[in-house]
Simulated assay, not measured.
Amino acid sequence: MRRLVAGLLGATLLGGVAAQAADLPVKAPVYKAPPLPIYNWTGCYLGGNVGGVWGRSNINIPGYPSNFNINNSSFIGGGQLGCNYQIQQFVLGIEGDWDGMSLSGDALSGGAASERYSVKWNWEASVRGRLGWAPVNTPWLFYFTGGATWAHMSSANFIPGVVSTTALSGTHNGWTVGGGVEYQLTPNWILGVEYRYSQYQKKTYQYLGPVDVDLKTNAIMGRISYLFHL
C-alpha cells in the first residue's frame, strides 16, 4: 500500500513539473542584422584626370554664304571634386571638374584668296549629377552622369584674310552626358574611366560681318581620386 501511494505521488509531481515546463515562454529566434557592405562609397573626394578629346566646330558665315566644320583633337587633363552618398547599392553624387585642352584647327572659309578660318579651345568645366550602382561586396561602381558644362574659345579669326581682322574669344555654355566605372583600389583610393559627350551653344561673333561658331566634343579620361569617408 505504501508503495502504491508513493508511486501515485511521484507521478503527480512529475506531471506538474512537465505541465509547468510546457507553459514556459519559448525564446524568439535571435535576429542577426545583415552584414555591412565591405566597400563604402559615401564621402567626398578629390582627384585628377587625363585623356583625349575629339571636337567639331561648325562655322556658319551668312555673308558668303558658307557653312563648314573644323575637326580637331587634343590631350585633356585636369581635376575633379565631388561627393557621394550610398543608399544600399545605389550611389547618388555631385561632381565639378575643370580640364585644360588645346582643340585647334582651321578650314577654308569660302572667302577670297584661299582664306581660312581658325579656332582654338583651351579649357572646359562642368557641374554634374551622378547616379551609380555598386554591386554587393564588390569594389566596383557603375554610374551615369550629366549636367551643365562650359568651354572657352581662346581664339578665332580669319587667316590670312583679304582684310585684317582681330581674333575674338568667348565662353560657350552647354550640356554634357556620359558614364563611367570606378574601382576601389583601397578604402580611400579610387581608379576610374569616364566617357562624356558635350554640346556647346552656338554664338555669333562680329568681324566685318557675323560668324556663328559652336562646338561638340567626345572625351574619354582615366581618373584617380582620394575618398574622404564621412
Rank of each mutant, 00 (worst) to 15 (best):
L4G: 14
V5K: 06
G7Y: 05
A11R: 11
L13K: 11
G15K: 04
G15T: 13
G16E: 10
V17L: 14
A19Q: 12
Q20Y: 10
A22C: 03
V26W: 04
V26R: 15
K27V: 09
Y31Q: 13
K32W: 12
P35F: 06
L36P: 14
I38Q: 15
W41Q: 09
T42V: 06
C44Y: 10
C44V: 03
G47Q: 01
G47Y: 01
G48P: 01
G48D: 00
N49A: 10
V50I: 12
R56E: 14
R56L: 13
S57I: 00
N58E: 07
N58A: 07
N58L: 10
N60Q: 11
Y64P: 00
S66I: 03
F68H: 12
N69W: 05
S73D: 15
G78L: 03
G79T: 03
G79R: 07
L81H: 04
Q88S: 15
F90H: 08
G93F: 04
G96W: 01
M101S: 06
L103Y: 07
S104P: 01
S104L: 02
A107F: 13
G110S: 03
G111C: 02
A112Y: 01
E115H: 01
W123E: 06
V127G: 13
R128G: 06
R128K: 12
R128N: 02
G129L: 03
A134C: 07
P135I: 07
N137F: 08
N137E: 14
F142R: 04
